[in-house]
């Protein structure tokens, strides 16, 4: 490097320093604010847990933790799936019905195909539902809400059509299949382990691979991703496929847990999943959905449910409380991330 170049470089550096001084980029926020934004949701979760432990001697026990984990499996899988789609910038309303469809397919096919092929078919079918959603949203230029709402109705019709409205039982001799939902390793249920395994694989895909990286880029600024030579449509479709795949896994587990498939009732998972994803977005102050946050969000909802149940609150009170927690958490997060002008109401 010549002397002149070096001189110009130091010049540039001093200028950049003066730039930094005159224009403090980013928010200037106090340490307390930053701490609250990062840990606020976790603090509330811990406080709630402490409160329930004081109110009920049965709350802070290993068997209750096991119960909470066991009850949240299906919801957690569905919520983790939805997280992908919300990160990619869309919505998926068909997840609840995908659970039901996969559940029915497995129960229906076990007698003819055997358990493992039945599971494979159910999961492939789930992925195809996701692919249809994704293709219609991208190449079809349709809105995610509308497409998945439509697919949701179609699936509910197909489910009733296949089953005739009756539950589909699984034979008690299918012990290998039933082990997936009802087996135990030590005191921990096998489905809890399946959930943890799925979560870990998804977490690695989201944080350590191109998959998570590009889905996040596409969801944040699709135009920038497009100009960076990223195949935007491919990643959006993949997000829908991953979402449907996780709902499909949830459906298989539902069938195994209850030794039967119910033709209705999957819709409930959808609303819980949305609550968990947006509650999860506030975890660790990310301000946008992420898988760990979603898992914490689901745990929060089920823990509160269990705690209020033990303390003796009526069922209705639990819903009111969960709704308020969601609004307050997301609202507090929005307050801490103040935008200049807020003109987006979705």
């Amino acid at each position: 490097m010549t002397q002149a170049e070096q001189k110009s470089l130091t010049q540039v550096k001093t200028m950049q320093k003066s730039m930094a001084k005159t224009q403090p980029a980013g928010r200037t926020e106090s340490v307390a604010m930053r701490f609250l934004r990062r840990w606020g949701t976790i603090i509330v979760l811990v406080l709630a847990a402490v409160g329930f432990s004081i109110a009920s001697p049965y709350f802070a026990t290993a068997s209750n933790l096991n119960n909470i984990l066991f009850s949240m499996i299906v919801s957690a899988l569905v919520s983790l799936g939805l997280t992908w789609v919300v990160i990619s910038g869309s919505f998926d309303l068909s997840i609840g019905l995908t659970v039901t469809t996969s559940s029915i397919l497995v129960a229906f096919l076990i007698p003819t195909l055997g358990p493992w092929a039945a599971i494979a078919v159910a999961l492939v079918a789930a992925c195809m539902i996701g692919a249809v959603n994704g293709i219609l949203v991208t190449y079809g230029r349709l809105s995610g809400i509308v497409v998945t709402l439509g697919v949701m109705f179609v699936l509910s019709g197909i489910n009733i059509f296949i089953t005739g409205g009756y539950q589909v039982p699984v034979g008690y001799d299918e012990t290998a299949f039933l082990y997936l939902g009802q087996g135990k390793l030590g005191i921990i249920g096998v489905p809890v382990l399946i959930l943890l395994a799925v979560f870990l694989v998804a977490l690695i895909a989201a944080t350590r691979t191109r998959i998570g990286h590009y889905i996040a880029a596409v969801g944040d600024n699709p135009m920038a991703a497009f100009y960076s030579g990223i195949n935007v449509y491919r990643w959006v479709i993949l997000a829908f496929v991953l979402s449907a795949l996780m709902s499909g896994i949830a459906g298989v587990i539902v069938t195994s847990i209850s030794s039967s498939a119910q033709p209705v009732g999957g819709e409930g998972y959808l609303l819980e999943a949305f609550a968990a994803v947006f509650l999860g977005a506030t975890v660790l102050g990310k301000g946008k959905p992420h898988l760990l946050g979603t898992l914490v969000g689901v745990f929060f909802l089920y823990m509160v449910d269990s705690g209020m149940n033990m303390v003796g609150f009526p069922f209705a009170a639990r819903h009111i409380f969960q709704g308020l927690v969601l609004i307050i958490a997301v609202g507090a997060n929005a307050l801490l991330n103040r935008e200049e002008v807020h003109l987006k109401f979705i």
Binding site: R208, R210, A216, A217, N221
Partner: peptide, 25 residues
């Protein structure tokens, strides 16, 4: 200028040209 605002400066500069095949470091 169009940037992905939730990404870091480095992630933006290399967007679409990340080193490695599947793994992102």
């Amino acid at each position: 200028a169009e940037l992905v605002s939730s990404f870091t400066v480095g992630q933006n500069i290399l967007l679409g040209n990340e080193p490695g095949w599947l793994r992102i470091s």
